[in-house]
Design a protein around this nucleic acid. Sequence first.
DNA 1: GACGAGGTTTACGTTAACGTAAAGTGCTTG
DNA 2: CAAGCACTTTACGTTAACGTAAACCTCGTC
Lengths: 147, 147
Amino acid sequence: MSRSPSQDLDEHADALPRQQRTYSIGELARMFEVTPRTIRFYEQEGLLAPSRQGQKRIYREKDRVRLKLTLRGKRLGFSLAEIREVVMMYDAMPDGNARQLKRLLEILEEKRANLDRQMEDIRLMRLEIDDVDQRARDVLRQLGETS
Amino acid sequence: MSRSPSQDLDEHADALPRQQRTYSIGELARMFEVTPRTIRFYEQEGLLAPSRQGQKRIYREKDRVRLKLTLRGKRLGFSLAEIREVVMMYDAMPDGNARQLKRLLEILEEKRANLDRQMEDIRLMRLEIDDVDQRARDVLRQLGETS
DNA sequence: GACGAGGTTTACGTTAACGTAAAGTGCTTG
DNA sequence: CAAGCACTTTACGTTAACGTAAACCTCGTC
């Protein structure tokens, strides 16, 4: 871990309204501490769809948000396929038919249940870690006393 | 999702004190809804070390707990290597020297920070999901009114 | 006009975490 | 004793998520 990512904070508040700012692939990569390769891969997997100016990819605010959500999902252990599933349905929503929308609601409910389970897992994991921590400190103290 | 795992609940409270119960690989596999292959793989990766009776693996309470922790770690997106790191240091604790113990405390602190970040990620993710959910319901309602 | 910094495509390589198949062992049950 | 079931080892296959390398464009600049 070298430098923490700047994420979405404009470091030195730039003048232009964030909404029309654009980013190069390199900029985005530095922002989120990933490689350009990763970003291109996400595009190939249908998670991003930047516009082009000639050959070059142009990323807008929407793309940046998507990337942020994608990486967050990854940190939570979701596969790119799962992430795409939600992201794409979200986009298809406005003109989605009732069946699709209900299916979306189902998926969302699954995700929520998943998150709840993860919350519980984290809670339990913390207890374990605190326990191990305590034991380690105890042993350390013992060592200190008998040395 | 076929049948939810029984985890550590003794389904029909058996008489023998849980501490000396033993399990076959198949039993454990069914308990946690994984394949025997997975369990053997975890052993090969140094996460489990069941005793043998002839050729057959005999799992005790300790092994079952380890497997449970391992799978919980996996659900949280940890790699087997990361999980092993903590589990093995935990075992090496009693006779660990001060340097090792301090190193362990460092690792634990990292893990804790990691869990905190995940908590935050989950919180944010829930907000997103709730938002998408709300929009979907709105669209559905619109459809209902105009049909 | 050479060149360095960024970008591009194409394509093969790599790692983790298992899946899957083959071939053998050992018990117990009809 | 044959059949079946649960276990074993060995070994090759597979998938996701990128890494890495080669070969090319394009722009500002020295």
